[in-house]
């Protein structure tokens, strides 16, 4: 019983993780490196779009990813009843 619950929690965690890592890959390796020359023909204010992704945009997305992860995981912890009690470090 306990085991099934933990398995379900783990696969929900993995789903969230893979989704976020897909975004992580798309903005940095995708827009910032593989597609940079293509995107550079578009403009974003005073930036070429590819240049903006590789030197500014990807970093902002990384921050958002970690906060989304922390927020969703805290919710998953509560949903599956595995959240920590206070001060359980031995």
């Amino acid at each position: 019983m306990e085991n099934d619950k933990n398995k379900a929690y783990w696969s929900a965690n993995l789903r969230l993780m893979f989704t976020l890592l897909a975004v992580w890959f798309a903005v940095s390796f995708g827009c910032g490196i593989l597609l940079v020359d293509y995107l550079d023909q578009f403009r974003f204010g005073g930036y070429k779009l590819g240049f903006w992704f590789s030197q500014q945009g990807s970093i902002y997305v990384f921050i958002a990813l970690i906060f989304v992860y922390a927020w969703r995981m805290n919710r998953l912890d509560r949903e599956f009843g595995v959240e920590e009690q206070d001060e359980d470090r031995s």
Binding site: L20, L21, I33, S54, Q55, S58, I59, F62, I66, Y69
Partner: peptide
């Protein structure tokens, strides 16, 4: 380094921040 390399400097900018996503998630 970025001042002299321009666009190529992005490897440090993305590499040294993107690692935190791996650290936080994995």
């Amino acid at each position: 380094i970025i001042a002299f390399e321009g666009a190529d400097g992005a490897r440090y900018l993305m590499g040294w921040t993107g690692g935190y996503v791996l650290l936080a998630l994995l």
